[in-house]
Amino acid sequence: MWRAHDLRLRRNVSIKEIQPPFRAEGADLKDARRRALREARSAGRLSHPAVISVHDLLEERGRLWIVMESLEALTLEETVGHLGHLPIHWTAWIGFQLLAGLRHAHGAGVLHRDINPGNILLTGDRVVLSDFGIAALNGDPSASTTVPISAAPSYVAPERLRGKRATPAADLWSFGASLYFAVEGRPPYEGPDALAVLGRAMAGDPAPPTKAGPLRRVLKGLLRRDPADRVTADHASRMLSEILRLEGVAVAPPRLPATRLPPGTFIV
């Protein structure tokens, strides 16, 4: 990631270089180009304060770059690392703002598929979902349905770990796991290595939260193993707004996404 300045439009930007995966015969530029185009298309069709803004996609001498808005921010992962865990009202506020962006993405037919504390940016007044590198676009036949090896199993929905297709409910599980991390100061599943974490994630529910207070009901609803039983984004948003109201934090009423998509939209 590079910090840069757009001379034509006179604005600061961030430039993300897409690193191609290496195979036995060398760099896989075709795969890198496909991933870069998917990320740019996914984020580029969204316009919401809680979603990173993408300005352009560049290719120069076989190197690929995504130009996006420049943010002075810490990730949720870094913030919790500094503070240990976040207070209930902070976590609820972060969740409420982030969920508005996620509902906007789902309303536009975009699944993120890799929500985790490292992809959630916190600025002075914004919560921003970034890194749409493995997002799935409605109708994109090139989008893989497998979970990438780089994904942290603590934040991947159980049905995705079992090889099921990505759905909005799977994004909501990852969203809930990120809120769990924020308020508890630890991921939903822990272990000495990724394989141990994966085994625990496949075997059962996360340990009950101990610091979440009124957020426990939200986390329980989001982290249900059966996606059919998981709370909806609308329901979660209403619960978060009620917690904030009781905590004395004023937020705008939850709004429905502008578009209602037909059943089967997210089958990729």
Rank of each mutant, 00 (worst) to 15 (best):
R61P: 03
P263D: 11
W65H: 10
R8K: 11
I66Q: 04
A177N: 10
P214M: 04
F132L: 07
R38Q: 05
A4H: 14
R8E: 15
R217D: 15
E72I: 06
R245I: 01
P187S: 10
F22M: 13
D31M: 15
A252C: 08
G264P: 08
P253A: 14
G101Q: 02
A166C: 04
R160K: 02
H85I: 07
F181H: 14
W65S: 10
V197S: 12
A228E: 15
G118L: 02
R45K: 06
P168K: 11
P192K: 09
S237C: 07
T91C: 11
R245S: 06
H235A: 14
S47I: 08
E25F: 11
R41F: 06
I115V: 14
L102M: 05
G109L: 13
F181N: 02
A182F: 14
A169T: 08
N119L: 02
A143G: 05
G204D: 02
T79Y: 15
A233G: 14
R126I: 03
R126G: 05
A252N: 13
E39K: 05
P148E: 12
V147H: 10
L83C: 09
A182I: 05
G44N: 09
A32Y: 01
D234G: 10
L74E: 11
L223N: 05
P253I: 03
W65A: 11
D171I: 01
R8Q: 15
P227K: 09
R45Q: 09
L9D: 15
A177E: 00
L223Q: 08
T79G: 05
G185E: 11
H85C: 13
R11H: 04
T123R: 01
K164T: 03
A170N: 10
A108F: 11
L179C: 09
D234E: 15
G248W: 09
A157R: 09
F132P: 01
G221D: 15
D229F: 10
R35D: 07
G118P: 00
D193L: 01
A233Y: 06
T79L: 15
R200G: 04
G84I: 15
E17F: 01
R8P: 05
L195F: 11
